[in-house]
């Protein structure tokens, strides 16, 4: 895990009030919603707002790729890297 992985895991914990969890507790490949971390639809919205504030990542709810990026910490890292490269 590199810095961005840890940073996004910590963002998830802080934003979503995940009690008693550390970044190391989140498996970067595990699903965020449903069976994995167990996040819900409000968490998805909250995470969208947090990503926008922190990384200026603009997300369009109608864009089918958004769902793919919200699978795991790994895919969110991919999203943040890709969008920041596009803007660079």
């Amino acid at each position: 895990m590199d810095t961005l992985h840890t940073e996004i895991s910590q963002l998830i914990i802080d934003t979503l009030d995940l009690e008693d969890m550390t970044a190391a507790d989140i498996d970067p490949a595990a699903p965020l919603f449903g069976d994995g971390l167990g996040l819900d639809s409000i968490d998805a919205l909250e995470l969208g707002v947090a990503l926008r504030k922190r990384y200026q990542v603009r997300l369009d709810g109608d864009d089918p790729s958004v769902k793919r990026y919200f699978q795991s910490v790994n895919t969110l890292v991919e999203l943040v890297r890709q969008r920041s490269e596009n803007e660079a």
Partner: peptide, 9 residues
């Protein structure tokens, strides 16, 4: 600022 969806709900 944007309003937090969780806070609103």
């Amino acid at each position: 600022e944007e309003v937090s969806p969780a806070t609103f709900s």
